[in-house]
Design a protein around this nucleic acid. Structure first.
Lengths: 206, 206
DNA sequence: GTCTATAGAATGATAGAC
DNA sequence: GTCTATCATTCTATAGAC
């Protein structure tokens, strides 16, 4: 018997506990708000004292960083699923699906929306590693919308403003309702008409 | 000499100090984040001990409430100035001005944007009095855009999503820059084209 | 109205025993 | 890896001197 399998099992156990802590942190964030997470409460949720958390994360910010990474991995998942569904779809279908999925992704977890898309935790900056994951997911999202004819940066920036805006209004002013969620398709129609008009006026200049 | 003038002066002094405290709280919020305000720091900024703040505000939440009120009074001011400028203006001018002013209002003070338009302070709920001021300002804003042909609720909801979205993206992803700010006019063109199209298709049904 | 003094409860974080 | 013990700091609040 070599020591290697044991080390693997220990590493796996450690990873699993870290993941449990992050999951419990999300639950707390949803209940108490993103900045309402207390180390004591978090420890209690995973059956530990607060101090023991520090053998997994060296600070509270490191926990936020793990949450940020976790959130962007979920976001990347959603983008990937959307990209797969986009094959053989027309631009309207692609964009409406993407917008609906994004808004649902946000409204289903307001705390995550705040952490990922607003700078809602004072003093917290994502680590370079987490930031790279966020950037890659953002790039993949941009790439997947290029299949629907959104190729220039300015148009994509208007897109992100529109969908984060719909999500933000829904979360802040009608939590649990659908006042903005039901405007998603109409907003995409608006956006598409604008993209078409833009392309037309540019080809006129050519 | 009656006592009344003295009472007035004392009340005025008190009000002035309260305003100083709120102003100092905004400075702290900008420096340390909205939830990073510490009573000791706040007291120090106005030359007081933390305990003395309690003779002006009975809790920290009451200070947030005063900030919320202060922010919406500034918002109401901006709306009023816009409404005055809207007289004898065409819809395009009105909407572009309103959008630019709103986005600048937000980006010039991210902490205020977070407090007014997102629920960024866990546990804080505005008092009914402050909430009424916020509602009135919102209604006034809605009314002032009706002069530009935005009469139905759904269109106005898309408008608020669009402008808060532009502001939010600017603040979160390009602080100090103008990546989304420079897309405001284009976004308004997009919105107006949609409103026109909507009106056309509705008159078709009539 | 502001101060000192004081209190209790909560926070993030560290050191060292086991 | 988890614990106990401990620390500095925070917020909230009260009592009483000036």
């Amino acid at each position: 018997m070599s020591g290697v399998p044991n080390i693997d099992r220990q590493a796996a156990r450690r990873t699993k506990t870290s993941e449990e802590i992050v999951a419990a942190a999300w639950v707390l964030a949803r209940e108490e708000g993103l900045t309402g997470i207390a180390m004591r409460d978090l420890g209690a949720r995973v059956g530990m004292r607060a101090q023991s958390l520090y053998s997994y994360f060296s600070s509270k910010h490191e926990i936020y960083d793990a949450m940020f990474l976790d959130g962007y991995l979920a976001f990347a998942d959603m983008v990937e699923t959307g990209a797969a569904a986009a094959v053989d779809s027309d631009p309207e279908t692609i964009l409406k699906r993407a917008a609906r999925e994004f808004v649902t992704f946000c409204t289903s977890d307001p705390a995550r929306y705040q952490l990922l898309f607003h700078r809602a935790v004072p003093g917290f900056e994502p680590s370079p590693a987490s930031w790279n994951v966020a950037l890659a997911a953002y790039e993949r999202s941009r790439e997947s919308l290029s299949a629907a004819g959104i190729t220039d940066q300015a148009s994509f920036d208007i897109w992100t403003a529109l969908v984060t805006g719909l999500a933000g209004q829904q979360i802040a002013n009608d939590p649990g309702g659908d006042r903005w969620e039901r405007l998603v398709d109409r907003s995409v129609d608006m956006f598409r008409a604008h993209i078409r008009e833009n392309a037309r006026s540019e080809s006129e200049h050519a």
